[in-house]
């Protein structure tokens, strides 16, 4: 277990990198014994700093949900981070990646907006559906403060699950009216289809992801709260983006989202 001073130092370092748009060497190179729990403590310190600046937590994101990314990082569980109000951008509008982010990549996912608290352990998929007000199409633009994305699982967790910015799309759909496992996703960049996917790409179903998060946070006494946005994990591979690109996504039965990067 890492001592508190070290956790604070590393959290501060990531906070500074975030604010100054600079990159740091992988924590796992410098602290080979860092555990996943240490990494979550660093992430909490980073988020505390953001809140101290006036940012408000509006939800959570789940990452590392695809078999491909899990294999790449050699882990067999997802991770999570916190979403703040400063991360959300308007659908169809300009997203200021050049002034806010460092090395952004786009993901397409399904966002769950909750109407009831979910407190694990013991949360089932039925509980998640009962607690979900509606689902929405979502872009998440992930970013890493770790140099060249050379991340191990502890690096991305400490860096608030590589959170960047996100956009919620144009429709809110009752999750009882759409099959979240088979719903298809089409991602277009500058008018070309760059990838397609389906709900099952995230742990077999986006619902499984939210259930995992509720139960994992439950162990630490942290609830998923009514009104929160939960990003359930990408259904397509990470797509690198640059200012000037525009993107749109469709999720079958759910809706669309679009964004221009500046």
């Amino acid at each position: 277990m890492m001592d508190k001073a070290k956790i604070k130092t590393l959290g501060d370092e990531l906070y500074d990198a975030l604010r100054n748009r600079t990159m740091v060497e992988p924590l796992t190179d410098r602290e080979p014994d860092i555990t996943i729990e240490d990494a979550y403590h660093i992430s909490l310190h980073l988020v505390d700093r953001r809140q101290a600046d006036g940012e408000t937590i509006i939800g959570k994101k789940i990452g590392v949900t695809s078999a491909a990314v899990q294999n790449m990082l050699n882990v067999h569980q997802p991770d999570f981070g916190y979403l703040t109000d400063r991360m959300i951008c308007a659908n169809g509008e300009d997203m200021p990646i050049s002034s806010e982010l460092i090395q952004p990549k786009a993901e397409g996912e399904i966002a769950f907006i909750l109407k009831k608290d979910l407190i694990g352990p013991g949360v089932t998929n039925a509980d998640v559906l009962r607690a979900t007000d509606f689902v929405m199409p979502c872009y998440e633009i992930v970013d890493s403060r770790i140099k060249d994305w050379k991340i191990k699982i502890q690096d991305t967790i400490a860096d608030n699950a590589s959170c960047g910015l996100f956009v919620l799309g144009d429709q809110a759909v009752d999750p009882r009216k759409v099959d979240l496992t088979t719903c298809g996703m089409v991602l277009e960049k500058n008018g070309e289809v760059v990838s397609t996917g389906a709900g099952a790409a995230a742990l077999g179903s986006p619902i499984n992801c939210v259930t995992w998060l509720a139960n994992t946070l439950g162990e630490f006494g942290i609830p998923l709260k009514a009104g929160e946005v939960i990003l359930s994990g990408s259904l397509v591979p990470l797509e690198p983006i640059k200012p000037g690109d525009n993107m749109s996504l469709i999720i079958g039965g759910i809706g669309t989202a679009a964004v221009r990067f500046v």
Partner: peptide, 12 residues
């Protein structure tokens, strides 16, 4: 699950 996709994979 070994593969996922959507109809647009077929020439749009």
């Amino acid at each position: 699950v070994v593969e996922v996709g959507a109809g647009a994979a077929v020439i749009g």
